[in-house]
C-alpha cells in the first residue's frame, strides 16, 4: 500500500508542481495518475522511489515513511519503467534485465533462469532475444525489455511513467493488453503515469486526475470518473466522448433483458462490452440484439435496456460516493 500525505513539491520558489496531494493506493491495485502535461504526475511518481523529495508532507509504503529508508535499498525493491525506457545500450537484453538481481547479489543460475522467465512473460522468446543489443530491438520490444527489467527482482511495487508513450498506437494497444494480462496474474501495486485519458480508463483500477499546478481534482474508479466527474476540469478532461467511453466499462450482462429474443442478425456474448452491443445494434435491422452464450440464447439487449444500464451504473456510483464520504 502506498500513501501520500499532504505532499507538496516546489522546485525553486516557483508555484507548486504538486500541491497537497493526499491519496492511498491499495496493495495490488493499479493507480493511474492522469492529467495534462505539467500537472506534477512525474513529480508525484518519483517521490515513491525518492528520485524527488517532497518539500512538505510524506509518502508511506506499508505505513513506513520512504524518507526513513536508504534510497538505494528502497529503489531495489521498486520496479521503475520510464517512457524513454533507458535500456543500457552497452549491455545485451539479458544483462539489462539482470541489473537489479545482480545488484542484489543473486547467483548466476538463478539470474539466468529469472531472465528467461521474464522474457517469456513479456512475450520475447528468450533464445532469440537474450543476446540482442537494445539497438537491435523495435520500440515495442525495448519497452517490453524495460518492463521485464523492472520486474526482475519481483518487486511488490511498480512505478511506470508513460510506459507506452513512445510507441505507435497499434503497439501501444498490444502492450496495454499485455500489461493487463500480466497485472491480473501478478497483482502488483502499480502507480502509472499517463496524459492519455483512454489509457488511464483502460488500465486503472483507480484514477487520480491532476490539474496543472499539481492539484488533485478527483480520485476514483474509472466508472465513477466517467459517470460523475467531480469538477468542471475533470469533465472537460474526460471529454465529450464520456458516455461512449462508459459503454466500454459496462458489459452486455448489465443490460440484459432475459428471455426470448425477436432480434436476428448479429449477436453478442454476455461478457462483451455495451460498446460492442451498441455497434451490433446499429448494424442490425431490428430494435434488439440477441445475447448468446455458447449455443444458448439468454435474452436480448435493446436501446432502452442500454439506457437503463447507464442510468443504473450512475446511481451505483452515487451510492458509492455517499458511502465513501
Amino acid at each position: 500500500m502506498i500513501r501520500y500525505e499532504a505532499v507538496t513539491k516546489r522546485y525553486g520558489d516557483g508555484p507548486p508542481a504538486l500541491d497537497g496531494l493526499t491519496l492511498e493506493v491499495p496493495a495490488g491495485e493499479t493507480c493511474v495518475l492522469v492529467g495534462p502535461s505539467g500537472g506534477g504526475k512525474t513529480t508525484a511518481l518519483k517521490m515513491v522511489n525518492r528520485l524527488v523529495e517532497p518539500t512538505s508532507g510524506r509518502v508511506l509504503i506499508d505505513g513506513r515513511d520512504v524518507a526513513s529508508t536508504d534510497p538505494v535499498i528502497l529503489r531495489r525493491g521498486i520496479g521503475y519503467v520510464i517512457q524513454q525506457v533507458g535500456l543500457f545500450p552497452h549491455l545485451d537484453v539479458a544483462a539489462n534485465v539482470a541489473t537489479v538481481p545482480k545488484l542484489l547479489g543473486w547467483d548466476r543460475d538463478r539470474i539466468e533462469a529469472r531472465v528467461d522467465e521474464l522474457l517469456d512473460l513479456v512475450g520475447l522468446e528468450p533464445g532469440t532475444y537474450r543476446h540482442r543489443r537494445p539497438e537491435e530491438l523495435s520500440g515495442g520490444q525495448r519497452q517490453r525489455v524495460g518492463v521485464a527489467r523492472a520486474l526482475a527482482a519481483d518487486p511488490p511495487i511498480l512505478l511506470m511513467d508513460e510506459p507506452f508513450g513512445a510507441v505507435d498506437p497499434v503497439t501501444r494497444a498490444r502492450l496495454q493488453d499485455e500489461f493487463l494480462r500480466v497485472q491480473r496474474t501478478l497483482r502488483r501495486t502499480v502507480v502509472l503515469v499517463t496524459h492519455d485519458i483512454d489509457e488511464a480508463l483502460r488500465l486503472g483500477d483507480r484514477l487520480a486526475v491532476l490539474a496543472t499546478g499539481g492539484r488533485l481534482e478527483q480520485y476514483a474508479t474509472p466508472a465513477e470518473v466517467l459517470a460523475r466527474p467531480a469538477t468542471a476540469f475533470v469533465a472537460d478532461f474526460v471529454g465529450a466522448g464520456r458516455t461512449l467511453r462508459r459503454l466500454d466499462l459496462l458489459t452486455v450482462a448489465d443490460a440484459l433483458v432475459p428471455g426470448r429474443t425477436t432480434g436476428g442478425g448479429p449477436s453478442v456474448a454476455p461478457a462483451a462490452t455495451l460498446a460492442d452491443a451498441m455497434a451490433a445494434l446499429l448494424t442490425s435491422d431490428g430494435p434488439s440484439v440477441p445475447v448468446v452464450d455458447g449455443g444458448s440464447v439468454l435474452g436480448e439487449v435493446t436501446l432502452d435496456s442500454i439506457r437503463a444500464a447507464l442510468r443504473e451504473s450512475q446511481v451505483d456510483v452515487e451510492v458509492d460516493v455517499e458511502v465513501d464520504t
Binding site: L51, P71, Y80, V100
Partner: peptide
Amino acid sequence: VDPAVVEAARGMGMSRAQ
C-alpha cells in the same frame, strides 16, 4: 550519456559510484 539511461540506473537502485 543519455540522461534517461542514468535515471533508469539510479531508479533501479545503483549507487552514484555504481
